[in-house]
C-alpha cells in the first residue's frame, strides 16, 4: 500500500515538474519587485470600527514555506484572505505577483486565484458532484478540462490517497479525506502558491502528518506555501523536514517567531 502510494506520488511529481518547467516563463514573469509572490506593505484591517491588525508588512519569496500562527481571533484567516484577494485591506497595499489588488476587478481576482491554491479549514465542496469532479473544478471553470488535463486527475487523486474515493460524494468523506481532497483541488492547476487555513484543524495527528507531508512535497517542487495554524506540533514537525519561517500575529502586529518553537 505504501509502495503504491509512493509510486503514485512520484508519477504526480514528475508530471508536475514537467508542467512547471513548460510554463515557467509564463507564470514567473509577473512577480513583484525582488520576485515576491505576495507582498503586504503597511497593511491594516478593521472590522466594525475596531482594528484587527495594523501596520503589517511582509514579503513572501517564491518557494518559501511560511507558517502563520497566533491566538484564535487574531486575524489569521483574514490575513490569508488578504493574500488571495478575497478581502481588500482598509489601509496599506497588498500586491499579488506584483499587482496591487486595489486595481483588480472581480474577474481579475478570479484569474489570480488560478495561480493561488486555497485550502480552508471548513472545506467547501459542491455536494452534488463527485470527489473527482470537485477536485477537477478549477480545470472546469478555467476551460482547461480537456482529456489531457483530466488525465492527471487520477494521478493526483492517487497522490492524496483518494483514488478509491473518486466517485464518492463529498459528504461521504471523513475529515482527513476532505482536507486531502481540498489540497488536491488547490494544486490541480499547479499554482505558484498554496494557502492553507488550519488545514489540520479537524483531523487526527496521523492524518495531519500525512497532509503536512503533501505540503512539504509541494514545497520541494517549488510551490510557495503559507499555512495558518495554531498547531505548534505541526510547525515543529515541518521544521524538521523543511526550512520554514514562522510568523505570529500578536497584539495586532505581525512578528517573526521561531526561537520558542
Amino acid at each position: 500500500m505504501v509502495e503504491k502510494c509512493k509510486a503514485a506520488c512520484a508519477a504526480w511529481l514528475s508530471l508536475h515538474v514537467v508542467c512547471e518547467e513548460g510554463k515557467k516563463g509564463q507564470t514567473c514573469g509577473r512577480r513583484g519587485q525582488g520576485g515576491c509572490v505576495i507582498e503586504l506593505d503597511r497593511v491594516a484591517m478593521s472590522y466594525g470600527g475596531g482594528e484587527l491588525f495594523g501596520d503589517i508588512s511582509l514579503k513572501v519569496q517564491p518557494g518559501s514555506f511560511h507558517f502563520l500562527t497566533g491566538p484564535s481571533g487574531a486575524g489569521k484567516t483574514t490575513f490569508l484572505k488578504l493574500c488571495y484577494g478575497a478581502l481588500r485591506p482598509t489601509a496599506g497595499q497588498v500586491r499579488l505577483f506584483g499587482q496591487d489588488v486595489r486595481g483588480l476587478g472581480r474577474d481579475d481576482v478570479a484569474l489570480m486565484r488560478r495561480r493561488i491554491g486555497v485550502v480552508h479549514q471548513d472545506v467547501q465542496f459542491l455536494d452534488h458532484l463527485s470527489v473527482a469532479d470537485n477536485v477537477a473544478l478549477p480545470l472546469t471553470v478555467s476551460g482547461r478540462d480537456s482529456a489531457d488535463q483530466l488525465a492527471n486527475l487520477d494521478e493526483l487523486l492517487a497522490w492524496v490517497g483518494l483514488r478509491a474515493r473518486a466517485d464518492a460524494r463529498p459528504a461521504e468523506l471523513s475529515g482527513g479525506e476532505r482536507q486531502r481532497a481540498a489540497l488536491a483541488r488547490a494544486v490541480i492547476m499547479q499554482p505558484e502558491v498554496v494557502l492553507a487555513d488550519e488545514p489540520t484543524g479537524n483531523i487526527d495527528w496521523e492524518m495531519s502528518q500525512r497532509l503536512l507531508q503533501l505540503l512539504v512535497e509541494l514545497n520541494r517542487m517549488g510551490t510557495t506555501i503559507l499555512v495558518a495554524t495554531h498547531d505548534l506540533n505541526l510547525i515543529r514537525a515541518a521544521k524538521s523536514q523543511v526550512q520554514t519561517r514562522v510568523l505570529r500575529i500578536s497584539n495586532r502586529r505581525l512578528q517573526l517567531a521561531g526561537a520558542d518553537l
Binding site: R106, Q124, L137
Partner: peptide, 16 residues
C-alpha cells in the same frame, strides 16, 4: 451562495 463561493474560490469569473 455557497456554490458561488466555491466557484469563486477556484477561480471562476462572474460571467462563467
Amino acid at each position: 451562495a455557497q456554490v458561488i463561493a466555491v466557484l469563486r474560490l477556484v477561480g471562476a469569473q462572474d460571467g462563467y
